[in-house]
Design a protein around this nucleic acid. Sequence first.
DNA 1: CGGAGTGTTGAGATGCCTCAAGTGAAGTGG
DNA 2: CCACTTCACTTGAGGCATCTCAACACTCCG
Lengths: 248, 248
Amino acid sequence: MADTRRAENHPFVRKIESVALFDLSASERAALAGLPMQMADYETDQDIVVEHERPKRCFAVLSGLAATYKTTQDGRRQVTAYHVPGDVPDFQSLHLEVLDFSICAVSPLRVGFVTHEALRAMFAAEPRLGDAFWRTTLIEGSLAREWMLNNGRRESYPRMAHLFCELMLRLETVGLAVDHSCQLPLTQYELGDALGITSVHVNRILRELRESGLITLSGGRLTIHDWDALAKAGEFDPSYLHLRRLDE
Amino acid sequence: MADTRRAENHPFVRKIESVALFDLSASERAALAGLPMQMADYETDQDIVVEHERPKRCFAVLSGLAATYKTTQDGRRQVTAYHVPGDVPDFQSLHLEVLDFSICAVSPLRVGFVTHEALRAMFAAEPRLGDAFWRTTLIEGSLAREWMLNNGRRESYPRMAHLFCELMLRLETVGLAVDHSCQLPLTQYELGDALGITSVHVNRILRELRESGLITLSGGRLTIHDWDALAKAGEFDPSYLHLRRLDE
DNA sequence: CGGAGTGTTGAGATGCCTCAAGTGAAGTGG
DNA sequence: CCACTTCACTTGAGGCATCTCAACACTCCG
């Protein structure tokens, strides 16, 4: 009983259960929970992995927020994804040896490293888990496409509204948001890096959103006061998140 | 001998050989070449699949160019990827049942449909092929991130330069470009949809690129006159394409 | 010959950027 | 406990990249 409970709370088990299209067997659960993980802590703005590295292991976010980003030669930065607890942001390093992005902590961050070797052994023993992890990378691709549409074709007001809807929903699914309110320790500069705009402009749009009564973002906490209005402003349709409960 | 040659020329064999990290065995080659494919032809602007569908099969591009795109509610369009012969643009439908994007022909297009069933059977019999296809979806993810950086953080002149470099290189790897010149039947409107700008602005930037002596694009043909200068203008570093010959 | 789609160019509008100054809160060291 | 620094946030003013609207040219095709 104690073992079962421990497995349920294991980040991998939680993640795969929320993503897989099947119910986990006892042995699959045990395989996930039994993965040898090496813990590590990072402070805000520290990089976990950087572009051009050839990692021999992946990591799972255990607590805190992480961001994948790339930069231009003159140092302009684009965040391409945010990662919440349970995510395995560099999972692709298992198949693409050279990283084409960096990942940094956007808050104090705890991660668990798992060697490629251990993951490959697990997938050999439990092939359905390989499919489930594959699914997670495909969902990340879906988010990327939605970001491209959002950043490419929406002005900054709806763009920001859309991002807040996505983050709130994703944080809710991992229990980090209640009543449309969550910790969101992003600086305005970082928000700009995700939205492709300037921190100055972030500030102005944020004020507009606040004055419209849709949200407040201060002290590292985001609160959505009018979800429906925000979703409408951001043309937010969560189907691209491929959440299981919405699939049925 | 005749069989071997046929297998070599099969689009799946070519694609996987260019992407996989191992050399294909005879049985893997046979499995790929033996996949039952249903051919179909599309005219420019026709959709092959559309958002919210639940396809029971994937398709490979056999000849022509295809584009993945999404639209906002008011009909603004963002192209998120282009697909050259050999690509399997909706491969993810194998694991994500509902499509979150549409794919259309941007030129007369020939595709080959393969049922999910046949693909799954092949992966069960030849697990390494599953890994290789997985790799293709991860490479697509890498392209998506580079596009996000490009569209989010570069102005339209370098942005367009970057896109042309990518397309030329990808078309070269499938033998559709020689001497930095290739068929590229994109309208200026469509280019704008990929770059997140207006067709009017595409026209002006195109003129600048032409007047700088970097490229000409007319009559559906793109020619790069000064590759080094174009790559420099677009800050183009091909490592994100994960081409095998560049990996070593 | 006429119509439709694409490309071209101009002129004015605007969303977002740049630069700059100033506020406020948190942390540090004397 | 108070200067002092630092860093994020805030706001204004002017500039620029890109958009919108509009007219017109060109090519293809029925």
